[in-house]
Simulated scan of single mutants.
Amino acid sequence: MTDFTKELDARNLNCPLPILRTKKALADLNSGDVLKIVATDPGAVKDFEAFAKQTGNELLEHGEAGGEFTFFMKKG
């Protein structure tokens, strides 16, 4: 498991809300901090991969268990 600075609960939110909430949460973090995001939207996987490429933040890892998707994103 990856160490993280802050956790964001994006369960039961549909696109684009998980990305928008993530963007807002990352703005409050320092460079190098890690944000853990938990989402239930199946489209979140490709959304977070695209978001990481577009913003320069690093998607460290992601996984799925029981219909919940967990992402660890490092602020660039």
Results as ranks from 00 to 15, higher is better:
Ala25Ser: 10
Gly56Lys: 13
Thr40Leu: 04
Ser31Ala: 10
Asn14Arg: 06
Ala39Pro: 09
Pro42Ala: 03
Thr40Asp: 03
Ala27Ile: 02
Glu58Phe: 07
Ala52Ile: 14
Ala65Pro: 05
Lys75Gly: 02
Thr55Leu: 08
Phe51Cys: 13
Thr2Ser: 00
Asp9Pro: 08
Lys24Ile: 03
Leu60Met: 10
Asp33Asn: 09
Thr5Pro: 12
Arg11Ser: 08
Lys36Arg: 08
Gly32Asn: 09
Thr40Gln: 02
Pro16Tyr: 01
Ala52Lys: 10
Cys15Tyr: 07
Gly32Asp: 11
Leu59Val: 13
Ala25Cys: 03
Lys6Phe: 13
Pro42Asn: 02
Pro18Met: 04
Ala10Phe: 05
Lys53Glu: 15
Lys36Gln: 02
Lys6Pro: 01
Cys15His: 12
Asp33Gln: 07
Asn14Tyr: 06
Thr70Gly: 01
Ile19Trp: 08
Gly56Val: 14
Leu17Met: 10
Leu8Gly: 04
Glu68Asn: 07
Asp33Lys: 02
Lys6Gly: 00
Thr40Lys: 04
Lys6Glu: 07
Lys24His: 02
Pro42Arg: 05
Lys53Leu: 15
His62Arg: 05
Glu49Phe: 12
Lys6Ala: 06
Phe72Cys: 01
Ala65Gly: 10
Gly56Cys: 14
Asp28Asn: 05
Lys46Arg: 13
Met73Asn: 02
Phe4Cys: 03
Lys46Leu: 14
Ile37Pro: 07
Ala50Thr: 15
Lys24Asp: 11
Asp47Glu: 11
Glu49Arg: 15
Val45Pro: 05
Thr40Met: 03
Asp9Gln: 07
Asn12Gly: 11
Leu29Asp: 05
Phe71Ser: 10
Lys23Val: 06
